[in-house]
């Protein structure tokens, strides 16, 4: 009887995916871009599989301050720096993340805006809390969560952070697609699309697809000039301004 059972499945569920665009070119009429990801789930088991698509942009440190009222004036308190916050982050799935995997798994994989692994190293203090040793606790104490949520809220309002529980749609059995909206303000640089496959709350496979957002043409020329030869760039800007001012005054004197 025992020998009739099939061998335990090793990786009978797998996923593969591709981006329809791997290079986003930022030109003068750039408006942000919609990127479509197609993929297929090969699931030979009878256990359901879930796909979670995560797109991360390059890290951008965030400085955030809280406004506090002092004698009628709203002042900024000392800003807090969050390191490791991605400049762009979006999660797409076909049902709520909490149904796909538990809190600990999501946190470990940094899936979901609440589980993004950004922190404030400059302000961290190591202490023992709740019997857990070497726990890094922020200077902000219990306010830490408020700050964290504020970063997510502000980035979400700018279209830079998103979490969409209906973002992965199935076109056909096993064939899915996800759309990622890059806003104009999404940072330039290398992005990574991660396609996670979950089964029974465990990650069974993850695939990565690179994505690059870069400036091309005149945008790139200006950007590089401004950063590589900043002083010459400044002089050129002033010459251009004085020249056009002179030009306009000559034209208007004649007319």
């Amino acid at each position: 009887m025992v020998f009739d059972l099939p061998a335990p499945p090793v990786a009978v569920a797998s996923v593969s995916a591709a981006l329809t665009t791997t290079k986003v070119e930022v030109t003068s009429d750039y408006h942000g871009q919609k990127i479509v990801l197609y993929g297929a789930v090969f699931n030979l088991t009878d256990r359901p599989a879930d796909v979670v698509v995560v797109v991360r942009g390059p890290d951008q440190p965030v400085r955030i301050a809280r406004k506090v009222q002092v004698t009628g004036l709203w002042l900024n308190s000392r800003p807090v720096v969050f390191q490791g916050a991605p400049g762009f982050y979006t999660v797409a799935s076909s049902r709520p993340l909490s149904e796909i995997a538990d809190y600990g798994t999501l946190r470990r994989l940094a899936i979901g805006v609440d589980h993004l692994a950004f922190n404030t190293p400059a302000d961290g203090v190591v202490e023992t809390r709740f019997g857990v040793k070497d726990l890094v606790v922020s200077r902000l104490g219990s306010d830490y969560l408020d700050y964290r949520r504020a970063v997510v809220r502000i980035k979400h309002a700018a279209g830079l952070y998103d979490q969409n529980e209906r973002g992965v749609t199935y076109v056909d059995k096993g064939l899915f697609r996800a759309e990622i909206d890059l806003p104009t303000s999404a940072p330039i640089g290398r992005y990574q699309a991660e396609i996670h496959l979950f089964q029974e709350g465990r990650e069974v496979q993850v695939r990565q697809r690179p994505l690059e957002v870069r400036k091309v043409g005149i945008e790139r020329t200006i950007y590089l000039f401004a950063h590589q030869r900043p002083w010459a760039y400044g002089f050129l800007a002033v010459l251009l301004a004085i020249g056009s001012g002179y030009g306009a005054s000559v034209i208007f004197r004649r007319s």
Binding site: P61, R63, K67, N76, A150
Partner: peptide
């Protein structure tokens, strides 16, 4: 919103 992004680093 009581929180504001403070400029001065990166973006």
């Amino acid at each position: 919103d009581p929180f504001v992004l403070a400029p001065g680093m990166g973006g």
